[in-house]
């Protein structure tokens, strides 16, 4: 099979590391060769962060570039727009409709673009927009946005839902399993 590429993008501190860990584990458990590439460190907090997940029979490059991604999963609207050009033709953008103002917007040096998702749709992109923050809060914590979005991604995969729950249990601390299972299912069933 051809190597598939998934990008997870968002704002540093939103929990993309757990999302990529979960996804990497699901794919490895399915028997794929997997590479996950991310940027670490506190100094990324509040900044634009990107994680690459690639899987297939044999994966070489750990990174994803323009026109290569099958999915871009964005934890925030503006970040979705920032990385949408990485989608290949026919790729899908799954985006959390949450707006987080970057510092230049906060200081008034820039304006947060309006109707950002409509503009992307107008460019012909296939967009699945969900309010993952509300669903995460419904699951019990605003921090579960990451798992809600992974649940949403799971919908587009031909992998048994139980396998996602199994990988989730391998990826989070025991005391957070129930909350995260709920978040996963809310994203999946939305």
């Amino acid at each position: 099979m051809e190597t598939k590429s998934i990008m997870i993008v968002g704002v540093g501190g939103q929990g993309s590391l757990l999302a990529s860990k979960l996804l990497g584990r699901v794919l490895m458990n399915e028997g794929y060769d997997v590479k996950v590439s991310e940027v670490h460190g506190m100094s990324q907090r509040g900044g634009s962060v990107v994680t690459y997940v690639r899987y297939g029979e044999k994966v070489y490059s750990p990174i994803i570039e323009e026109g290569e991604a099958d999915f871009v999963i964005s934890f925030e609207k503006l970040e979705g727009a920032r990385w949408a050009h990485c989608l290949k033709k026919g790729g899908k953008l799954i985006v959390n409709t949450q707006q987080i103002d970057p510092m230049p917007v906060i200081t008034g040096a820039a304006v947060y673009p309006e109707n950002i998702l409509d503009e992307l749709t107008a460019k012909g992109l296939d967009i699945d927009a969900i309010d993952a923050l509300s669903l995460a809060e419904e699951a019990g914590s605003s921090k579960a946005v990451n798992v809600v979005l992974m649940g949403r991604l799971a919908k587009y995969f031909h992998i048994d839902y139980n396998k996602w729950e199994e990988a989730l249990a391998q990826s989070v601390k025991p005391q957070f399993i129930d909350l995260n299972k709920k978040a996963l299912s809310l994203g999946y069933n939305f």
């Binding site: 323009e66 503006l78 970057p102």
Partner: peptide, 20 residues
Amino acid sequence: EKKESIAPDTALPIRPPVMC
């Protein structure tokens, strides 16, 4: 050959890391 994609939107406000 370059891969087909939409053009990157370079006008978007940047998001540098910030002090928490």
